[in-house]
């Protein structure tokens, strides 16, 4: 057994089969202490199963789970120093907000006065002062989410697991909570392992990301590494828009749209084509261009001073696409 070496979670050769289907097909992963770590992937990619294995709700078919250097593979959830924020929050409906938050402390026989104090502090840290006596049914989705966070954090776990915690919130609230979660993680200094299918969310909040596909990890890296240098076509396509041209790829926002015959620039690649589709996105516009050389590229342009009618006029127009060569990345076909 390894000693505590700054690794919060270490997964080795993890596999999990449900009947004939293998949800997790060999996962090796290390999450460092204090990290905000995202497990990103489409539904059915095994990311939630891995989270549930770390929490102890599922036992792996093969492989081991170590928490802070201690092997916990066969231990029950209540024997592990982790807490979970569930996708639908899983608040106890028959308890008040304060009773929900103090539940873990009560089980660990923390004295009543300290329990109250810590529950209040936890509520305060998620900006819900004064909600102690409410029932979960009397709270909005965003408030329930915060109570679930407070209920987990009040136990000061070594690792906090979050299963799509923002999935049920509307866009506005989700964006607010992304910032808040990140700040909260920094202030408490607890390792967060976060499951999401939303690439934007993963890029915004995480220190590092593991991209899951078919029960395996395709790539682990910082948001910049994942986005700028995706290791496989799947990662390139799942994180951001895939723009595949003869083995190379370039992100849509790196491409400039110029009039045909613009003077050439050094260190740049270019391709001529016809605008096939214009998608107005409000803050920006997506141009889908059929290239003369075959294939298509998507270019994204900020609507700096163009409006919807002006960009719509681009449909069918001849354009020249140009981008700096350093934005090219090779995508190796994975086996």
């Amino acid at each position: 057994m390894a000693a505590d070496d700054g690794t919060a979670v270490r997964l080795t050769g993890l596999r999990k089969a449900f009947g004939a289907t293998e949800a997790v097909a060999g996962v090796d992963l290390e999450v460092r202490d204090g990290e905000f770590f995202a497990m990103l992937g489409p539904s059915g990619s095994g990311k939630t199963t891995v989270l549930r294995i770390i929490a102890g709700f599922e036992e792996p078919t093969a492989g081991t789970v170590e928490l802070a250097g201690r092997e916990v593979t066969r231990l029950a959830p209540f024997e592990r120093d982790v807490n979970t924020v569930f996708q639908d929050y899983a608040l106890f409906p028959h308890m008040t907000v304060e009773q929900n938050i103090a539940y873990g402390l009560k089980i660990r026989k923390v004295p009543k006065a300290e329990r109250r104090e810590r529950a209040h502090a936890a509520l305060s840290s998620v900006r819900l002062d004064g909600y102690e006596r409410r029932r979960p049914a009397q709270l909005s989705g965003g408030q329930r989410q915060r109570v679930a966070l407070a209920r987990a954090l009040v136990n000061r776990p070594r690792v906090l697991l979050l299963d799509e915690p923002l999935g049920a919130l509307d866009l506005k609230l989700r964006e607010e909570m992304q910032v808040e979660l990140k700040q909260l993680q920094r202030s408490v200094g607890i390792t967060f392992v976060f499951v999401t299918h939303d690439q934007q969310e993963a890029l915004t909040m995480s220190d590092r990301i593991a991209v899951f596909n078919h029960g395996r990890i395709e790539q682990v890296g910082t948001p910049a590494e994942i986005y700028e240098r995706p290791a496989t076509p799947f990662v390139a396509g799942f994180v951001g828009t895939s723009n595949l041209t003869n083995g190379f790829s370039v992100r849509p926002e790196k491409i400039r749209i110029l009039a045909e015959g613009s003077p050439a620039e050094s260190e740049h690649d270019e391709a001529a084509g016809t605008v096939a589709e214009v998608v107005y996105l409000g803050e920006s516009t997506r141009f889908i261009v059929d290239l003369d050389s075959g294939g298509r590229l998507t270019a994204l342009r900020q609507n700096l001073d163009a409006d919807a009618t002006e960009v719509a006029a681009y449909r069918g127009r001849r354009v020249l696409l140009r981008w700096h060569r350093r934005h090219n990345f090779a995508v190796v076909q994975s086996t």
Binding site: G56, F57, A76, T84, A90, N155
Partner: peptide, 15 residues
């Protein structure tokens, strides 16, 4: 009874 209430209870340390 939502199954994850039981998970949540175990997660918070309850046998």
């Amino acid at each position: 009874l939502p199954a994850n209430l039981l998970d949540a209870s175990a997660d918070l340390g309850a046998r």
